[in-house]
Write a protein that binds this DNA or RNA. Structure first.
Lengths: 176, 176
DNA sequence: GGCAATCTTCTCGCCGAGCGAGATAATATG
DNA sequence: CATATTATCTCGCTCGGCGAGAAGATTGCC
């Protein structure tokens, strides 16, 4: 029962949150006859649709970290469930374009909707300053995680005390 | 593109963060010959060890949402890798106690160490007030997520939570 | 134009993670 | 002491995901 510093305590809280979210996603997926990967794929496709990025099997597979064969299987399942439709790209007929159906959007809403609503309400109950703190924190953490994810192939030599010292520098690195 | 309210933007950021964390965990696992479930199991076991909670296959399986057969398989793999050791509980000899080896601790440090260090530093660079805001936000979100997880028909009583302090609540869900 | 290199997706065969059912051993309960 | 309960493990099976490679389309080079 050590008492870690406030930093560690917060880290721990954050991790607990992600665990909770994962469990929720897994149980939701199972309840709808989906596998965790299917749900991840669906989310990626919904995101792409929302952002207007054309979705293809290749891109999806890369995002999911799944083989092309596996990607085909995922899409077969999603298509069989009526959540995704495959159409050939008229401009490059090697490609297949993926479009999510209305049903997929509904499903996504069913999963995220209430959750998003509550959390959003929670955020909107904060003052502007508080909100800025939270957003800055999230963006900063994500930036850290992304950096670690990149230096993945080898022994990342980052234990060297990057020294950041005060972690409040410029964040909001990028848009998603 | 569309500009959702500040609430939605924050939600989106949070989700992006969890996705990033998942990918990192997956790639780390793969790099070490582990499966995602193995890594989750290892983390759960390390947590239990840190908190002084006795770890058993049954409890682990419940936390992971995995069958008893699957749990045995997970433990076989971890044991073969020299990360976990099984010993019979002398007080209740049906039980098997799980202890993580030093190697497992090292592995955990290798994964979380640098990340935790940076994020912790980041948190400690915040003022006390800002820290309170962040912690409050994380706790509130987690509470919301946990509530939804309950209503999701998933009976797994993962009360792990923040880890320091509360622990054995005793409210295990076996509503099924 | 024709031929080769390249890209995208899908098919096939296989491995193994995780499930259901049931076996086995130890502990509680009457 | 017999019986129910708890904890873990074994067996057989399904099916998600991987590697290899085929098939169709495009681009580049001569």
């Amino acid at each position: 029962m050590d008492d870690p510093g406030p930093g560690l305590r917060t880290v721990h809280r954050l991790r607990a949150l992600t665990v909770e979210l994962d469990l929720l996603a897994a149980s939701f997926a199972q309840r709808h006859g989906l596998h965790p990967t299917d749900l991840r794929a669906l989310i990626a496709l919904l995101d792409a649709a929302r952002e207007g990025v054309p979705a293809t099997p290749g891109r999806l597979g890369r995002e999911l970290g799944v083989n092309s064969a596996g990607t085909t299987a995922v899409l077969d399942r999603l298509e069989r469930l009526g959540l995704v439709r495959r159409t050939r790209d008229p401009h490059d007929r090697r490609r297949v374009l993926l479009e999510v159906t209305g049903r997929a959007v509904e499903l996504g809403q069913g999963f995220f909707g209430p959750l998003i609503g509550e959390v959003a309400a929670l955020v909107e109950g904060l003052s502007a300053a508080e909100r800025a703190v939270v957003e800055g924190f999230l963006a900063a953490v994500r930036e850290v995680v992304a950096r670690h994810a990149e230096g993945d192939g080898n022994g990342n030599g980052n234990g060297d005390g990057d020294g950041d010292g005060d972690g409040r520098g410029g964040r909001d690195a990028e848009a998603e």
